[in-house]
Write a protein that binds this DNA or RNA. Sequence first.
DNA 1: TTGCGTGCAAAGGTTTTGCATGGCA
DNA 2: TGCCATGCAAAACCTTTGCACGCAA
Lengths: 140, 140
Amino acid sequence: MNSYVTRQREALKDYLRSLAGEHVNAEDIVGHFAAIGEPIGRATVYRCLSMLEREGCVQRYVTGTHKASCFQYIDAPEETHEHFHLQCERCGTLQHVECHTLSDMERHIRQSHGFDVNPLRTVLYGVCHDCGQAGMKGKN
Amino acid sequence: MNSYVTRQREALKDYLRSLAGEHVNAEDIVGHFAAIGEPIGRATVYRCLSMLEREGCVQRYVTGTHKASCFQYIDAPEETHEHFHLQCERCGTLQHVECHTLSDMERHIRQSHGFDVNPLRTVLYGVCHDCGQAGMKGKN
DNA sequence: TTGCGTGCAAAGGTTTTGCATGGCA
DNA sequence: TGCCATGCAAAACCTTTGCACGCAA
C-alpha cells in the first residue's frame, strides 16, 4: 500500500502545499505541470488526488453543477477539525471558518440526530458579505 | 419568455410537487415518466429543471463527485428555511433535518461572519447512524 | 526482480446543444 | 401563423479504467 515515492507524487504534494489553502481543480494542476515543462498525466493527477484524499492530506469539494471538483491541501488534519468551508454562490469565493458555534452544531447533530458530520468535506453555500451588499435589492 | 404551458412542463411540476420535499435526479424523472407511459425526453427534463430552478421553484444540489445532481421542489420557500440536508458518505442516504441548532448556526454565521447561508443548497456530509454502527471498527 | 506508478487512450456517466418537428396561443 | 417547446442524437465535460511500459525498492 502506497509504498513508492515518485517524482510525480512528490511534485503534486509540493504544489498543493505551496498553494497554502488555495483550492485548485484537476485541470489547473495538469496545466501547471505542463506549463513548467514537467507534465503529469491526467490519470495520474486524479489517482494521486484520490490517494491523498484517502490519506486525509487533501480535501475534495464539489462546488457546482457540471463543474470540476476542487482540491485543497490539508496540513494538519487534526487542527482543521472545527474548520468549515463557506462558498459564495455568486462570486465563488471559498472561505474558511473556525468557530465554536459550528463545533456545537456538529456535536448536536451527532448526539441528537445520530449523524457524524465531516467538516472537511462539507461546504456551506450562501452569499458572502460583499455580494450581499452589492446585490441588496437585485436578489438575482 | 416562458410563455407556453405544455403537457410535459405541467406534468413535471406536478410530479415534483407530489414528492413533497423528496429529492430526485434527472434519471429518476425520466424513468418515472417512461414507466407511466408518458415519456419525457432527457433534454426536456433538464431544460425544464433549469427553468424551474431559475424561477426559484426548484432547488438543485450536488451530492457527490461524478454523481448526478438532485432536484427538489420548493413549495413555500420560507417554510424550508430551517431545513438542511445530511448525506451519508458511505451509503449515500440523504436525510432532512429541521432543527433550531441549525437555525442558530445560520444566524450566527450571518451575524458574526457576514455570510448568509442558503440551507436549500447546502449539504452536510458525514456518516449516518446506521453506517456508524456498522463500521465501528472496520472503517470501510 | 517484483510489483506499484505512470501515461495514453478509451470508456463511463451526466449535462448541454443542434436541428428538425410538433404544439400552444 | 409565429414562435416556443420537444425529442433525438451528438457533443461536451469530468472522471475512471485497461493495458503496456517504466521506475522505486
